[in-house]
């Protein structure tokens, strides 16, 4: 949502380790997921969205630049919020920014040849893999799956439905995960 000049914050009542694990299972989430774990649901309660069962409702609040609440939407717990509706609201409260927002990116061609590493900025194994490659003076191309349209889908296809980072495409040979043994085999090192 960078183009909309809106900072997205996700909030759930789960603990930080749980959020980290969840984000990793999704292949990374690059906006902060906040843990409203202790005191349990205190912020959800302040915002009136804490349920009796201790979970929060699925709810959206848009806060403007001055800290004023401009939009409130509380969904049924099983409902996915509608992105278009949110964009429309952001356009309404900030028309200037909305006008300059970039168009929705289309899939781009993914790099081929040499070592291509599909990763995220934050993923720990990607960080290790970068160091590993650099230590061996191996040239590689990095594809940020969060910033490259179509990349996540490609990784999911390779990973049999799983979004595994890092995933390597080495001259057409796919290596899932930072698997040093397998990388050494494929690279002949």
């Amino acid at each position: 949502m960078a183009g909309w000049n809106a900072q997205v914050l996700g909030i759930s009542v789960d603990s930080v380790p749980c959020l980290i694990a969840w984000a990793e299972s999704l292949g990374g989430i690059n906006y902060p997921l906040l843990s409203d774990f202790w005191p349990h649901g205190a912020v959800a309660d302040q915002y009136g969205v804490l349920r009796d069962d201790g979970k929060s409702e699925r709810a959206l609040f848009i806060i403007d630049k001055k800290g004023i609440i401009r939009y409130i939407d509380i969904h049924d717990i099983d409902d996915q919020p509608d992105n278009e509706e949110i964009f429309a609201e952001l356009r309404r409260i900030d028309p200037e920014k909305a006008a300059s927002a970039p168009p929705v990116p289309k899939s781009v061609e993914l790099p081929k040849g040499g070592i291509v590493m599909y990763c995220t900025k934050w993923c720990v194994d990607c960080r290790k893999a970068r160091v590993w490659l650099q230590e061996r003076n191996l040239e590689y191309t990095e594809v940020d799956i969060n910033a490259t349209p179509g990349a996540g889908q490609q990784v999911r296809e390779w990973g049999d439905g799983h979004l595994i980072t890092p995933t390597f495409d080495i001259e057409g040979t796919i290596v899932l995960d930072f698997d040093e043994q397998r990388l050494k085999e494929v690279l002949g090192k």
């Binding site: 949502m1 909309w4 000049n5 809106a6 900072q7 997205v8 914050l9 996700g10 909030i11 759930s12 009542v13 789960d14 380790p17 749980c18 959020l19 694990a21 969840w22 959800a44 915002y47 969205v49 349920r51 979970k55 929060s56 409702e57 699925r58 709810a59 959206l60 609040f61 848009i62 806060i63 403007d64 630049k65 717990i77 919020p81 949110i86 952001l90 409260i93 900030d94 920014k97």
Partner: peptide, 14 residues
């Protein structure tokens, strides 16, 4: 900056 706060029920355990 505008802030979009999304409360979400995770209902997911590692």
């Amino acid at each position: 900056s505008n802030v979009l706060i999304a409360f979400f029920p995770l209902a997911w355990t590692p």
